[in-house]
Amino acid sequence: MRRSNGVTATQIALGLAALAASSSLLDKRSLARARKYRTGEPKQAKAVYDNRILGGKLDVPATVTAAKRLNRAAGMLALSVLADSGVEHYRGSFKNKAMFTPLIVSAATLGVSVHGTADRRKAAHIMRDTTYLLAATTGLIGTCFHFYNVAKKAGGFSWQNLFYGAPLGAPMAILLSGLIGFCSERVRETPRGITPSIFDLPAGRAMAALTSVGLLGTAGEAGLLHFRGAFHNPFMLLPVTLPPLGAALLARTAAAGPGRRHPFVRWWMRLLVTMGLAGVGFHAYGVSRNMGGWRNWSQNVLNGPPLPAPPSFAGLALAGLAALGLMRDHPDA
């Protein structure tokens, strides 16, 4: 009787899984195409291109700037996953050795993202590419694990198991980190004079769309868990209202076409970054609201609101900003 009630959250998760799966199938083709372009890059076009796009102020191409921003977004998500899966899987006593996987993978993803953020070169990096693909795959496999974990419990996909079983949406964060990182490599290696594209779609708009979906999914996860907390604090409504609006704005941006600046959407994304970071503060307050407060950290960090979860929003909003930046700087993207 409660099975039917589990559908909303499940549908969100399933939708995300389907999207991620189809995206990953396209990866190989896209990668191969990107390599082909890279070999034939016309070097003399660089100065012309930079002057056209950046007005000659910087010598870093717009694609690299956008890629670095995407690396930063992927890194923020990876950091969130590293901390979140660390805490949650510690709570699960690492009963299954596979529970170490997201820690290792997200740590590596974080590492290559930092590397990418500092890297001004125009070429994709094989380590980064591989790691990001690995992260995406980990997200997919993790999602399967979590679905299996919930399904096998009495009641199946009931509210009880959605609330307290392995969180279905959580592994999506590492998948998103991987996809964003992978996209950053495609953008970075796009030659002068060619519109950066991902999966044959203009990169800026594709990233905006991906981020939009990511924001919706993450808001769904926050919504489920804040519902579990009966929205006892009105601020708990923020992550279920602001991000979906941001997602809608980004989706509209993606649909609207190139060549616009979207100042309001950019402002909204910055708001989400702030919300994501402030969320850590709210959750820290939430931990202190549990019995024994921070002195009882060994219980409350695990049973209280998850400290590392809100930065997922910041990571996605950073990806949104990168996408918007790319669209601004590269009118065809």
Partner: peptide, 13 residues
């Protein structure tokens, strides 16, 4: 009290 328990399912400690 104040600390109770976190892991409360089968075989959880």
């Amino acid at each position: 009290s104040p600390r109770g328990y976190v892991r409360i399912d089968y075989d959880e400690r």
